[in-house]
Design a protein around this nucleic acid. Sequence first.
DNA 1: GAGTGTGAAAATATTCACAGCA
DNA 2: TGCTGTGAATATTTTCACACTC
Lengths: 232, 232
Amino acid sequence: MAKSAHGQHGPIPEAAVSRLAVYLRALSSLAETEVTSVSSEELAAAAGVNSAKLRKDLSYLGSYGTRGVGYDVRVLTEEIERVLGLTANQAVAVVGIGNLGHALANYGGFPGRGFPVRALFDVDADLLGVPVGGIQVSRIEDIAEVCAERGITIGVIATPAFSAQSVCARLVSSGVRCILNFAPVELVVPDDVEVRKVDLAVEMQILSFHVARRAGTRAAEEGTNGMVTNPS
Amino acid sequence: MAKSAHGQHGPIPEAAVSRLAVYLRALSSLAETEVTSVSSEELAAAAGVNSAKLRKDLSYLGSYGTRGVGYDVRVLTEEIERVLGLTANQAVAVVGIGNLGHALANYGGFPGRGFPVRALFDVDADLLGVPVGGIQVSRIEDIAEVCAERGITIGVIATPAFSAQSVCARLVSSGVRCILNFAPVELVVPDDVEVRKVDLAVEMQILSFHVARRAGTRAAEEGTNGMVTNPS
DNA sequence: GAGTGTGAAAATATTCACAGCA
DNA sequence: TGCTGTGAATATTTTCACACTC
């Protein structure tokens, strides 16, 4: 068997995957300027990570840089896109056309292209057939049919919490294997389905923790009292 | 010095903090039923993690369970809220009242209470003074004044990428130390400012990677079936 | 008996630091 | 000389497994 000099070596660590998308955006910005080559130092700065981590992450893809020079913007972009599976377009369905669903539908293809929204679903009869962002809203009951018809591969759940699990089940039984969940519940899915959750309340609470901690720390350092229990 | 049996022992690992908020929601659901006590096993299932991890996470807060019994829902809820700093309400400002900003403003306090939206900002003159979700939109130039006036502690950036950094700078110089960023850029902030980023394109791309990988794996295994890929 | 709390082990992830190539 | 690619060292996170308490 001929061994290629390029190509993915082994499984890419999850943590690295989630940063590849970030590098990709940084590369896009560069591509818009006249820059054709970047060093790990520069790209890392643009992506907000340190350069050793960036080089390590890229090393999982293979060897696409040039020692003493850096990375070719075009080559690296294409390589990351290939690894992330962005060469084939994924068709997206958004379920739940409330405030958030509306916003998502109007994003029109999700920033960073490659993710055209191709179907919208809601229970609200008043919305049926109404075009949002150029796409008509279909009935939840028709998820299976419409998803099959339009080749949906990614489902976005933007419904209230109480209906998220049932919507999810419908999507899964329609063959959707990737789900982005904005509803504040833990979805139960088969092993071969990938779910990612975006939870605004959780993000806010994490921020809240950091404000609180900082305030506590500051009070402690203030010399006088504080709510501090932190024995360091 | 009297040593309390309770209270936080040391610094709480970042990974644990980000799950506390998830446990909190699971606890809220339980509180709505008549359940007053849960085991780590049950709570872990509701939160989508394994029970060892949950127990370890909770152990960073101190010892709030009862051996042989479990955790008191009320007590644990209060403890997590205290640690996350949810006892004091954080006032939120949303900057950029486009599709997404609109949706965020209408959330009205962010699910999971404790985060009332108290200010909205946009550059669009047509929006000035228009109430969205009950709050009037103010001018970006007035960020400093309005934030001080309303005691804003958390800023949410929902502007286009090109204005995110300048909006961020305004928020920071107005004293805001926590930022939730929806714009697809890496914000540069002083060390004492905490930024969390929510990036829909990145989430989609990570999902895309998993579809691609699955498809690849399946193709490779075609013939001899089995979901076994793990070379252990 | 049942289920927490936690050291110790294993797995992951990050950072260092430098050999090796353009 | 300059910068990549990567083993080795370190730090963090997860998991195990069991002593301990109710």
